[in-house]
């Protein structure tokens, strides 16, 4: 089972409760919740928030491909994943991404969750503009998409 969405932070918020409802299953003995949150510093600057930009259609397509890759590569039993990423302004401490996964056994959920976040970093078209205390906002440099692996 799989759910993914891009959440416009000005209209709604990412919540653990929604993820919990989706991944709960009596077939699974393990579940794991990963949250990405906005931290207060980066590159020696005081961060006050991050604006996320997203190519929504490609982001959802990328999430689905990553989920399918994980199933093929990790040989998971009863895999369930709930992935949501924020777009728009997220203040300090706010949730930017949630990856909630469930599987039959505990070892699989750690692998599953780690696989998803690392692949998002490499493949999913999302961008960050950081806001600082007393300094101009900056788009973070990011990593070029590998055209051959996209």
């Amino acid at each position: 089972m799989f759910h993914c969405e891009v959440i416009d932070n000005s209209k709604e918020k990412i919540t653990i409760q929604k993820a919990k409802k989706f991944i709960e299953s009596q077939k699974c003995g393990a579940s794991l919740y990963f949250l990405g949150t906005v931290r207060d510093h980066n590159n020696d600057k005081t961060v006050t928030g991050i604006t996320y930009d997203s190519h929504d259609v490609m982001v959802k397509k990328s999430f689905k491909e990553i989920y399918e890759d994980a199933i093929n590569k990790l040989k998971l039993e009863h895999p369930t994943a709930f992935v949501e990423h924020a777009k728009g302004y997220v203040p300090l401490g706010g949730i930017s991404v949630i990856i909630a996964v469930a599987c039959k056994h505990r070892a699989q959920v750690y692998e599953f969750s780690r696989f998803i976040i690392e692949e998002i970093k490499k493949k999913t078209p999302i961008w960050k503009k950081e806001h600082y205390l007393g300094e101009e906002t900056t788009w973070l440099e990011g990593k070029p998409i590998d055209i051959n692996k996209a």
């Binding site: 990405g36 996320y52 997203s54 190519h55 490609m58 982001v59 990423h85 930017s96 991404v97 976040i117 998002i120 970093k121 493949k123 999913t124 078209p125 999302i126 961008w127 960050k128 973070l140 440099e141 990011g142 990593k143 070029p144 998409i145």
Partner: peptide, 10 residues
């Protein structure tokens, strides 16, 4: 079409 500059989500 779209231009996709270097990415950095998460």
């Amino acid at each position: 079409i779209s231009i996709i500059p270097p990415i950095g989500g998460g």
